[in-house]
């Protein structure tokens, strides 16, 4: 899928953290100096090369959405660096940050909730152009119409004047992608762009995303819980669990030989659309713990079928195992 992969690093995320403060009863806050925080993203580092797609997979509550939003400063990071194209995004403020935003964008999960129901499609898509003062009114309209044509939102003129409620789920998601691309960004965070769509529409949207990636020379951070979708679009995949990346490797490696027990569980949980295949399923114990109370030691040890004593004591770092990065004592 990737023919000429550039080796130049486009995005570098270093020790990124995002903690949300929770309410503590005031008496405890004052007298006991108690503070309760949710560590949604807990010391995450990774790189994305120019033109590459990095997938982030994990369960609900693993912090993957927070990570995606923090990377493009829709959420302020607690600490860490986000270096995009040699600029540290965490140091940008005010107008400078606003201007920088034309270079990156996001596709949200729910196309029903991410389009303003009182705005016509044309206005929704031209909004980013207006904010960044790009083109005249006429030029903007032409640009949008040609994009609609390319996205199979035809006839484009009709879609331009429609309200979101008259569009199907797939069409809405196309509008969301058009809006994300209208300022010619270099980087897109796609936050579960196909989770709310039907199977056949899902493939159409994935195909469109692969096509525009080539055309617009984009770099993607693709967040999903659906490993099957990740297979088609990602070059590398990072697996997140409770705010940390626990394994990151090339797509082929993850699918052929997942190393971390959690990755193995994720892989075996995917239903296989073939009644002739009966598999031994690997199941985790219980449910994902709360991010306010992350287990000591390896954060997965409470559910891991292979946990040993050391897992309860020591937190494993992301280390190199045969050229792959994995955070597990057992591997």
């Amino acid at each position: 899928m990737v023919n000429k992969m550039n080796t130049e690093t486009f995005l570098k995320v270093e020790h990124l953290r995002k903690e949300f403060d929770l309410k503590v009863p005031w008496i405890e806050a004052i007298f006991k100096h108690k503070k309760k925080t949710v560590k949604a993203v807990d010391d995450v580092s990774f790189e994305i090369k120019r033109g590459e797609t990095l997938g982030i997979v994990g369960e609900s509550g693993s912090g993957k959405t927070t990570l995606g939003r923090t990377v493009i400063r829709l959420i302020e990071p607690t600490s860490g660096k986000i270096i995009m194209d040699n600029t540290d995004l965490t140091e940008l403020r005010g107008e400078v940050l606003r201007r920088a935003r034309r270079d990156f964008s996001i596709i949200f999960q729910d196309p029903m909730a991410s389009l303003n129901p009182y705005m016509r499609i044309g206005k929704i898509v031209s909004h980013p152009l207006k904010i960044h003062n790009i083109g005249t009114k006429q030029e903007r309209k032409e640009k949008i119409l040609s994009l609609f044509e390319k996205f199979n939102l035809t006839p484009p003129g009709e879609f331009y004047n429609r309200f979101p409620k008259y569009l199907s789920g797939g069409q809405r998601q196309r509008v969301v992608i058009a809006r994300a691309l209208i300022t010619n960004p270099k980087f897109i965070v796609a936050d579960e762009p196909t989770a709310m769509l039907d199977v056949s529409v899902r493939s159409q949207i994935l195909k469109l995303m692969i096509q525009v990636k080539k055309e617009f020379k984009l770099t993607y951070l693709f967040i999903t819980h659906d490993l099957a979708s990740a297979k088609y679009i990602c070059d590398r995949i990072g697996v997140m669990y409770l705010g940390k990346i626990i394994e990151i490797a090339k797509k082929e490696d993850i699918f052929k030989e997942p190393l971390h027990p959690y990755t193995k569980i994720l892989m075996s949980a995917i239903p296989i659309p073939d009644p002739n295949v009966k598999r031994e399923k690997l199941m985790p114990k219980g449910e994902i713990p709360s991010a306010t109370n992350i287990p000591k030691g390896c954060r997965f040890h409470t559910r891991c079928p292979f946990a040993k004593d050391i897992c309860k004591e020591q937190e494993p770092d992301l280390r190199n195992v045969n050229g792959r990065l994995v955070a597990c004592h057992i591997v």
């Binding site: 899928m1 199977v199 056949s200 529409v201 899902r202 493939s203 159409q204 994935l206 195909k207 692969i210 659906d226 490993l227 099957a228 979708s229 297979k231 088609y232 797509k251 082929e252 699918f255 052929k256 892989m267 995917i270 296989i272 659309p273």
Partner: peptide, 18 residues
């Protein structure tokens, strides 16, 4: 068509059908 359009996790099948 419905069966063919299911995304699968086989690495040798990268054709997205719909």
């Amino acid at each position: 068509m419905l069966l063919e359009s299911i995304p699968n996790i086989k690495l040798d099948d990268m054709d997205l059908k719909f």
